[in-house]
Amino acid sequence: MKKTILFGAAALALLLASPVKAAEGGHDDLPHRESWSFAGPFGTYDTAQLQRGFKVFREVCAACHSANYLYFRNLAQPGGPRFSEAQAKAVATDYQITDGPNDQGEMFQRPGRLSDHWPAPFPNDQAARVANGGALPPDLSVIAKARASHVGFPGFITDAFTQYQEGGVDYIHALLTGYVDAPEGFKLQSGLNYNKYFPGHQIAMPKPISDGQVEYTDGTPATVDQYSRDVSAYLMWMAEPHLDARKRIGFQVFVFLIVLAGLLYFTKKKIWKNVAH
C-alpha cells in the first residue's frame, strides 16, 4: 500500500509538472552555461578579462547605467581588475564630481578622487527614464547577482553540488548576444527591441554593442561575443568583489574542518570503545 501511494504521488507530480513548465517557459532558449574563470571551488577572476570588461563597461554600459556601489578605489583593490593606484586615480580624475557646499554655500565640481563612487549618468531616476524612452536602466552594481537563468527541478538540486553560481553572468552574456530579428508574426511594441533571452522578449534597451566598437589592445578579438563575456565577468566582480578571497578561505576552512572531523571521529571511537551502544 505504501508503494502504491508513493508511486502514485510521484507519477502525479511528474505529470503535473511537465505541461505547466512547458506553458510557463514556452520554447524559450535557456541561456547557455558558459565556462567562467571564477566558477568552481578554485575559481578566480581573470585580471586581464576584468580590465577589458571595465573598458566595455566604461565606454558602453556606463553611458546609461549607474553603478552606485562601485568606488574608484575598488579598481585598485586586490581580487579585482588590479589597476595600479595611479591608474585608478587617473580614471577618477577623468570624471567631475559634484561636491560641496563650499564656504559660500554653493555646490561645486571637482575632479574625482579614489573615495568617490562611480558617477551616475543621470541625476535621478526620472531623468534617466526621460532620456531612455520611459524605461529605467537598472543600476549595475549587483546586477550579476540580481539575475538568474531559471532552473527547475531537478536542476536546482544538482546545482547545490556543482556549486553553480553563475546564472546571473550566463544570463547577461546571453542577453547581450541575444538580439536577433523578431520571428515572423511576433508583435513587437514600438520602441521595444526583440531579444531571444529577455523574459517576454521585448526589451527597452536597444542592442548596446557591435563588433569592433570597443578597442582591445591585447589582441583579444573585438567581437560582440567577447565583449559580452568580458563585461559579464566584470559585472560579476562588481557584484561579488571578494569572490577570490571567499574561495581561497573556503578551501582552507574545508581542509581544516576535514582534519578536525577526522580527529574527532577517532577520539569518539576511542571514548566509546568499551561501551556497547
Binding site: R147, Q165, K247, F251, I258
Partner: peptide
C-alpha cells in the same frame, strides 16, 4: 563530532554557493 560535520555542510554553502539558498530578486 556531529557539529563539525554539520559545519562542513554549512561551509559548503557559505564559501562556494552563498547565494544558492537566496533569491536573485533580493539583490
Amino acid at each position: 563530532f556531529a557539529m563539525v560535520v554539520f559545519l562542513l555542510f554549512f561551509s559548503w554553502f557559505i564559501f562556494y554557493a552563498p547565494n544558492y539558498m537566496g533569491h536573485p530578486d533580493n539583490y
